[in-house]
């Protein structure tokens, strides 16, 4: 049980571990998104009857969480490690605990607990039951049994495991300031991302052109609807547009130009897109309930 000494060791350890469990090791999705769940490998693949097993790192953008590089652990861009297993194996939690051991957290020396935390994403019309996993009082991971995505019942149920990589690494390395993390033996996390946090915080809160963003939102919404409005459903490109709309909304929200009442309406619009994409996905070959070619 070699401790994952650096940030990239942690990622490599998880990659190897989940590869050994038979997961596809996918790469981050090339769209800005708030969480690994938005990756089509989770959102869309969680639906429909086909078995699916995948793991990947996903950069997660939360414009509002920007702190100009000054907060010890809040970032507007951070990494999630996402595992999606469909159908949920009976030993999901044991598999998870195996990964924790692999990282170097020995459950016989630490206090690992599963504390109720049900997950819900209003923008994706998705929810599930599960826990946040505590390690010595620190929330290290979220484990969820998906019940619905896009308002559609998940059948079979998929299990999702989401690690907050920076937080986990800080715990393993005993570091209190995220920028002090050893990324590898040579570079600290701050050398890679500090300037980016500063610049993007300014962009998120001050510089992003709201007129352009409003237009982006409208364009993405329109394009999404077009792609699934016809006889042939183009679920994947349509879903890309849904993700873009969601990120435009997050930026507008950070810019403070969306009032409390409008907020719910925007979330509703993104949810409508997500639902439509999910429904369309089920009519495509890979999402269909009755596979056309296996």
């Amino acid at each position: 049980m070699a401790k994952a000494r650096t940030f990239q060791d942690l990622i490599l350890t998880l990659q190897n571990y989940w590869a050994a469990q038979g997961c596809l090791i996918l790469q981050p999705y090339d769209n800005e998104m708030g969480a690994g769940t938005f990756h089509p490998a989770t959102t869309l693949r969680a639906l429909g009857p086909r078995p699916w097993k995948a793991a990947y790192v996903q950069p997660s953008r939360r414009p509002k969480d920007g702190r100009y590089g000054e907060n010890p652990n809040r970032l507007q861009h951070y990494y999630q490690y996402q595992v999606i297993l469909k159908p949920a194996p009976e030993n999901v939690l044991d598999l998870y605990l195996g990964s924790i051991r692999e990282i170097g957290l020995d459950p016989n020396l630490h206090d690992i607990r599963f504390v109720e935390d049900d997950w819900e994403s209003p923008t994706l019309g998705a929810w599930g039951l599960g826990w946040e996993v505590w390690c010595d009082g620190m929330e290290s991971t979220q484990v969820t049994y998906f019940q619905q995505v896009g308002g559609i019942d998940c059948d079979p149920v998929a299990a999702e495991i989401t690690y907050g990589l920076e937080r986990l690494a800080m715990y393993v390395q005993g570091v209190e300031f995220v920028y002090d993390l050893a990324f590898n033996d040579q570079f600290r996390y701050g050398e890679v991302f500090h300037q980016s946090e500063q610049e993007f915080s300014a962009y998120n809160f001050e510089l992003a052109d709201t007129e352009i963003l409003f237009q982006h939102f409208k364009d993405a919404e329109k394009q999404c609807q077009q792609l699934i409005g016809g006889n042939r459903k183009f679920a994947l490109p349509a879903y890309d547009q849904c993700i873009k709309a969601s990120h435009a909304f997050n930026l507008l929200d950070a810019r403070g130009v969306i009032s409390v009442t409008e907020r719910a309406a925007y979330i509703g619009r993104v949810r409508a897109l997500a639902k439509a994409c999910c429904e369309a996905w089920l009519e495509t070959p890979m999402g269909a309930y009755k596979p056309r070619f296996a």
Partner: peptide, 20 residues
């Protein structure tokens, strides 16, 4: 905690102190 750790809980306490 839900654990009787092999080291008497040293790491658990240290971890919790850090989180706090």
């Amino acid at each position: 905690s839900n654990m009787v750790a092999e080291d008497g809980g040293k790491q658990i306490v240290a971890g919790n102190e850090r989180v706090l």
